[in-house]
Amino acid sequence: MKRAVILFSGQGSQVDGMGIDFYQADPRFKEMIDQASELTKLSLLEVFKNCQTATTLELQPALTAFEVALFQMLTQDFELEIVGAVGLSLGEYPALIASGALFVPEGLALVTKRAKFMQAEAKTQQGALVAVLKPDLTELNKLCQQCSNEQEIVQIANYNSPKQVVLGGHVATVERLTTKLAVQGKKVVKLNVAGAFHTPLFATSKAQLAKEVTQIKFKDPAFTIFSNTTVEPFTAENLASILPKQVIEPTHFAKCLTQTLETKQPDLLLEIGPGNTLSKFARQIERSIPRYQVDTLERYRKTLAELREQE
């Protein structure tokens, strides 16, 4: 049996019309999405159709439901030994639900609350995220400190791959830093997001989530999931303290994947979620490992056929 590590993509990966093909073709997917719509009180199919205009409040539960449904179908359709998973940011929620650390209804409820808190907080402030290519991390951290002050900050929000990091903070501070980087000839691109996720700009969301998680009895994940925040494996004990912190601290996808590859030695990576962003990061981290995606029905079938062929 193939040893697989599953990658769960985060917010920003959504594309208009995602999941419609599965919804029409597979009754299992339809049932799971309909149930998730009831649980979250959102019309998830409508969110799938109009992802580009959807809000954080809608997108986080929609992506979670989409990815969990695909995970469940995949594990029914093909026997894989799942030895680990890495989610990016929001993607940690579908990863945790898939691993059994959270039951589906409680996981969806929690992610819906997280989305609500983050959307409300994003509206109260002017935050921005920008991607920086081929960064010198020491230099970049120094510049972030120079540009930040007591009221307004900028910091590294996502350590995505050796070739790319994302900076987040207050708009004015981010702009100051962008200008400095441009002078040095560094390339910076503004990301189209609702706020400076993974920075202290979301301190209220963190506090609100900390209250919510006290209601939940987490289980140990069935497979290893290194936390984006601490780069330690999630456990029933540490989830309640890490998940709230996750919204204000940087994500370390690259380190999580490296740790997972080293400790689990998987045969392949399988990305669940729209697009192949995480597979691209994975290739920049360790190019030799085979990568598969299951974002559309067509690619789902192709991936299954390829995996079966290798047996």
Binding site: A131, L133, K134, K163, Q164, K187, V189, L191, G275, N276, T277, K280
Partner: peptide, 13 residues
């Protein structure tokens, strides 16, 4: 080729 705008940016860079 299903590139997003960040991909295009990285390619040009």
């Amino acid at each position: 080729l299903e590139a997003d705008s960040l991909d295009v940016f990285e390619i040009m860079n």
